[in-house]
Simulated scan of single mutants.
Amino acid sequence: MADYRVYQLDEDGHIHSPPETFACEGDEAAIQRAERMVDGLDVELWQLDRLVIRLRSKDK
């Protein structure tokens, strides 16, 4: 299992709050989990120093 971090980003693209960390079997499972965290703010999913995906909020 790999460790992942999800960061919520403010309107200017800056980190809004401390990351949520979790472990997943792989990128697909981590992306699915990160998609559930998109709630009015964009989020970035990281695995170590690798940006996996940036998910945009549909509320913008």
Score class of each variant (00 low, 15 high):
Ala2Thr: 03
Arg5His: 12
Arg5Asp: 12
Arg5Met: 11
Arg5Gly: 04
Val6Gln: 00
Val6Cys: 00
Gln8Ser: 15
Leu9His: 02
Leu9Ile: 03
Glu11Asn: 11
Asp12Pro: 00
Gly13Pro: 04
Gly13Asn: 11
His14Met: 13
His14Ile: 03
His16Cys: 04
Ser17Phe: 03
Pro18Ser: 11
Pro19Thr: 04
Glu20Gln: 15
Cys24Met: 15
Gly26Tyr: 04
Asp27Lys: 13
Ala30His: 03
Ile31Thr: 10
Gln32Ser: 13
Arg33Phe: 12
Arg33Trp: 13
Ala34Leu: 09
Glu35Ala: 15
Arg36Thr: 15
Met37Glu: 10
Met37Asp: 05
Asp39Gly: 10
Gly40Asn: 00
Gly40Tyr: 01
Leu41Gly: 02
Asp42Trp: 08
Asp42Tyr: 06
Asp42Gln: 08
Leu45Ala: 00
Leu45Phe: 04
Trp46Ser: 04
Trp46Asp: 02
Leu48Gly: 06
Asp49Leu: 14
Asp49Met: 11
Arg50Cys: 06
Leu51His: 03
Leu51Asp: 05
Leu51Glu: 13
Val52Thr: 05
Val52Gln: 04
Val52Asp: 02
Ile53Met: 10
Arg54Asp: 01
Arg54His: 09
Ser57Arg: 05
Ser57Met: 07
Ser57Pro: 03
Lys58Ser: 13
Lys58Tyr: 10
Asp59Gln: 09
